[in-house]
Each structure stands twice: as structure tokens, then as C-alpha cells.
Amino acid sequence: MKKIITLEVNGDLHEVAVAVHQTLLEVLRDKLGLTGTKRGCAVGTCGVCTVIIDGKAMLACLLLAVECQGRSITTIEGISSADELHPVQQAFVDQGAIQCGFCTPGIVMTSKALLDKTPRPDDEQIREALAGTFCRCTGHIKIMEAVKTASQYERAEKKSD
């Protein structure tokens, strides 16, 4: 039995027919074609599918799509413009914080959610925010650097505004 729901994703309203057991991850990827959010373990252990919902980093694999009605969902596709990467994305590129890139969208979203709330995080705050993510390639070392660089980029951007 399917239900018609309206999801607000990256500022756009999408009317979709979903089975009540379908996760937000399935709907984002399979129905809305937003494949930037990758499917990792799909049981909430790796952080690969992290999206931002009402300002909080959340795992799309652990949320039912029907729960997300009326909430503001931001995916990796929603943070950069056509011309420019988001400062967090730019910092990840510049610092070499990307290797295979499978976990990257989720970690970028987790980092963005952190920086939105805590513009100047210290090491412990970054470690804690990223504790649920899982990067097998980089050892998270350059990711830590990238988050700090992103914080600088964002501050510089605000100054120039």
C-alpha cells in the first residue's frame, strides 16, 4: 500500500508515492534520482548516507520517508551552486581529504552540520561530530584538517560579504 507524501529536498517540494516501509535513502536515490547520497551499510553503522534535516546531520538509511514530511531536507546536491563549491567541499578538495570518495558526501554533510552550529570547532568537537562516520582510506587525518580549513574559509567568506 503506497502513500503519497510531499518531501522538501534542497528547497524543492517533491510529491512522491512511497511504501510506508521505504527509507528516506531509498526515496532520495531511487525516486528522486539524488544519487549523491550514497548507500553504504544501510543499517546506520557507517554514516555514508548522512543528510541534514532541519539543521541536524541524520542518517537517511534509518529514517522512513513518511517521517520526513514537513521537514527541511538538505542533501549533498543542495549545498553547492552551479559555479562554486561550498566552502566545506572546497576544503575537502584542497586538503586531500578525499580518496575513494564513497564516504565523502556523508562526511561533508556531517561536517557542514557541525560548522553551521559551531563555526570554530576544536579538535575534540570535530572528532565527536565525525565519530559516526567511517572512512577506510584517509584515516580521517586529512578530514580533520579539511574541517578546520572549512571553518577558516567560511569565516573569510563572511568577512568579505
Partner: peptide, 23 residues
């Protein structure tokens, strides 16, 4: 020289395609 990877912008925006992204 220290070079960020060429496919960095693709990967960091989720545009890089992995097998599960192919339909």
C-alpha cells in the same frame, strides 16, 4: 608539487558514479 586530486570536485559533490548509482 602538492596537487588536490583532479576528480575531487566530482567526488565532493556526490557526482562521481559508483556501481549502485547506475540504473
Amino acid at each position: 608539487t602538492r596537487r588536490p586530486r583532479l576528480d575531487g570536485p566530482l567526488k565532493v559533490t556526490g557526482r562521481s558514479q559508483f556501481t549502485d548509482d547506475i540504473v
